[in-house]
Simulated scan of single mutants.
Amino acid sequence: MRETILLVDDEKMISEVLEAYLKKDGYQVFIADNGIDALKKADTVQPDLIVLDLMLPDISGEEVCRLIRKDSEVPILMLTAKSGEAERINGIVIGADDYVTKPFSPREVVVRIQAIFRRVKKSSKTSGMELSFNKQGLVINLFKREIEIGGQIINVTPIEYRLLSNLAQHPGRVYSRMDLLEKIQEDGFSYEGYERSIDTHIKNLRKKIEADARDPKYILTVFGMGYKFGGSPDVKNASI
């Protein structure tokens, strides 16, 4: 079955060129030229990937991304004319999987999409695999990339998910900030943050998964070294 791509851009020429390249590569393509239409088609088409321009005529691409991320983990490749580091990092933080800065080569977009699908297919090998801790107080589904706390799925950013899943797969192992930064960037994931930015993501993640962020049970600080996972693995965790 061909992968389905939703292409969201209000510039007709860009949409037509990218559509031609993507169809030539065998993808099925749907097009939206504004944010509202993009949200509707994302819901009805259920695409395998979304190419999303940040500059849309009605609502911003950032807002479209945030709304989609409330209900879906579909990969999102952002197109942006903003070349500043802050804008690029913000795109990743709110839920994008990668970005391409305008002007760009249509072939580069296709290559980025191929790389994202390779990562998705690699993840699918762990279909059905779950890690659970503290008598299922915390459950991580490695295939769906979902995190449950007390039986409730919580919303996390792609970076937060990568941080938690990597820590949880090796309980007790101490990771330096640089170790975690490198883990985030594995498999071609674009992130240009600094070591200390890890602290901010950890702080935000603790607020979501810990009963008391000031007295964490899952993500523990190892002073002078970094972080480690402190949850107690349940017996069914076959991968640990």
Rank of each mutant, 00 (worst) to 15 (best):
S105I: 07
M55L: 13
I153N: 13
E210T: 05
G231H: 05
T126H: 14
S165I: 03
S232C: 08
P158R: 03
L142F: 07
D10T: 14
V235S: 09
K125C: 13
V45Y: 04
A96I: 13
V93Y: 08
Q169M: 14
D215V: 15
I89W: 03
K236A: 12
S83D: 12
K41R: 11
G226F: 01
K208A: 05
I31Y: 06
F229I: 07
E62P: 07
K144G: 10
I5S: 10
P57E: 09
I184S: 02
A42F: 10
I68N: 00
N141Q: 12
G128T: 01
G231L: 09
G84Q: 13
K144H: 11
T101S: 13
F133P: 08
Q114A: 09
I89K: 13
K144Q: 15
S232G: 05
R69P: 01
V222N: 04
E16A: 15
E195F: 00
M129N: 07
I76K: 07
S239A: 13
E85Y: 07
I219D: 02
S190C: 01
G61M: 05
N155C: 11
Y99N: 06
S132E: 03
L56C: 01
K203M: 08
G188H: 06
L181A: 02
K102S: 02
K144E: 15
I36V: 15
K121N: 14
G226D: 00
L220H: 03
R162P: 01
T157H: 02
S232Y: 06
L79W: 09
Y194V: 00
T200L: 13
D179V: 02
S123W: 08
E130Q: 14
K40H: 11
R66A: 06
Y21H: 15
I59R: 09
S105M: 08
E182D: 01
I89N: 03
E148G: 02
D10C: 11
E192S: 09
F223Y: 04
E182G: 04
A32V: 07
I154G: 00
I76G: 03
E182K: 12
N204R: 14
E16Q: 15
Q114V: 02
P103V: 10
R2K: 14
E148S: 05
Y21V: 14
V100C: 13
